[in-house]
Design a protein around this nucleic acid. Structure first.
Length: 390
RNA sequence: GGGCAGAUGGUAGAGCGGUCAAUUACACCUGACUGUAAAUCAGGCGCCUUUCGGCUACGCAGGUUCGAAUCCUGCUCUGCCCA
């Protein structure tokens, strides 16, 4: 049984249904990974995630290294046991933190120099260190430490980043092999995935993809996107990278995205996605709603809309956020109640809202898989976008 | 009936002669949020105006003053206390 199996290819696009086999179970793709940066998807239990159909979660190397420390998690028996999540875990390498916390960090050949917030101690996150930490966490999918410049995209800087990422990748692979051969990893089945950089420059994406393929990775992530660029630029980056990666390997699109982004990227062949949008925006009062039978010039379509539950107009709205939704919030509570909880700062508010948005995203992925399975993905892609409904 | 305190923008509550269209908070409105330093952040919030600026405003009516939300007088109302 190969690591990744393509179960069904869509005839109208590059989308496909597949399954990734990991030491902690299968992941049916296209899949969305709820983000649990510090070992928890904010306010949500592992049991709930599993119940709603999440098959894998993402955790962060950088943050878990700082607290509670990867050695502590190693002592706990690995991150799966520590957080009691029995399914697959995907860990980010810390590369994104290098980018998002850039003001306080310095990228060097050796790695990233930075200071811990708590005690000001200086540390270097190197490609090896990142792999070591992820080995101690015992994730099923680990990522190499990568470098990326952000937006706007600049050719020279992007070229440097794919070159540095390649050199770091070589070191990461060696370190990972060393651990597998000589070490005592928490999760011997852990796979290290490469990351393709190169902004939206086709030649750089191609080069970076080839660099990664040459290193023998079994899975790949597309990085450096969702940093403020327009949707078209993001798709351009995806289109530039995917043809140069093996068709029978899983591809993750890092940090993406809106429901629209995800559908579009799935159509281009991306298999897995992670994003803070559903969880973060839930905390900020933005709720996603499946919009069925929306009137469009081409007839009725299906898409989605969002509401800001904080608005006064929902004060006396005693209907569910989405009466067609099967999440706990929609089955049990009204907009007026959720608005009240959020307005009064009740912790339950963000939990209920998070439940809803995560269910929306997970339902979306199920719809994509189903559409591919039953041959109507083309129709779904055609009109699936955000609609205004007010 | 007497005494005391007070009346400020949706609400609470600053201001106590000019720099006040009026601090601040809440409410309300807009907008952000894409490998989570984010249960967060930014902007707006009398009316007209793109800006400049103009107009009307701090219970009501007068007055003092170059100038009043701020001082004085009367009135109205509110709260507390004493009869």
């Amino acid at each position: 049984m190969s690591y990744f199996e393509v179960l069904k290819k869509d005839e109208s696009s590059k989308a496909r249904n597949g399954v990734i086999h990991t030491a902690h179970g299968d992941i049916h793709t296209p899949a969305f990974l709820p983000i649990g940066t510090k070992g928890a998807v904010k306010t949500i239990t592992s049991e709930e995630l599993r119940f709603w159909g999440a098959e894998i979660v993402l955790a962060n190397t950088y943050h878990l290294w700082q607290r509670p420390g990867d050695l502590l998690i190693y002592k706990a028996g690995g991150l799966h046991k520590f957080m009691n999540w029995k399914g697959p875990i995907f860990t980010d390498s810390g590369g994104f933190q290098v980018f998002s916390l850039a003001k306080m960090r310095k990228t060097m050949e050796a790695g990233v120099l930075f200071q811990f917030d708590l005690d000001g101690k200086q540390e270097i996150l190197s490609p090896e260190k990142s792999v070591d930490i992820q080995a101690n966490l015992g994730s099923d999918i680990a990522l190499i430490l990568d470098d990326f410049p952000g937006y706007p995209f600049e050719y020279q800087r992007s070229k440097e980043s794919i070159e540095l990422t390649k050199r770091w990748a070589e070191r990461a692979v060696k370190e990972h092999q060393k651990i597998v051969t000589d070490g005592d990893p928490v999760n011997p089945g852990q796979k290290l995935w490469g990351i393709v950089q190169g902004a939206s420059f086709p030649d750089l994406r191609k080069q970076s993809a080839e660099d990664m393929v040459a290193l023998g990775f079994e899975g790949f992530a597309i990085g450096g996107v969702a940093v403020g660029e327009p949707h078209e630029e993001m798709m351009k980056a995806v289109e530039a990278a995917l043809p140069h990666l093996p068709e029978n390997s899983p591809k993750h699109l890092l940090g993406v995205g809106t429901p629209f982004d995800i559908v579009q990227a799935a159509a281009r062949g991306c298999d897995t996605f992670d994003c803070v949008i559903p969880t973060r925006e839930a905390r900020h009062g933005r709720l996603y709603i499946a919009a069925k039978n929306v009137e469009t010039p081409g007839g009725t379509a299906e898409g989605y809309s969002t509401i800001d539950i904080r608005l006064e107009k929902y004060k006396e709205d005693f209907t569910p956020v989405d009466n067609a939704c099967d999440c706990y919030l929609c089955l049990n509570h009204t907009k007026a109640y959720l608005r009240h909880l959020l307005a009064t700062g009740e912790p339950l508010a963000i939990r209920l809202a998070t439940m809803h948005n995560l269910k929306f995203y997970l339902n979306l992925m199920a719809k994509i898989r189903s559409a591919i399975e039953y041959g109507h993905f083309e129709e779904m892609v055609k009109n699936y976008k955000e609609y205004e409904t007010n």
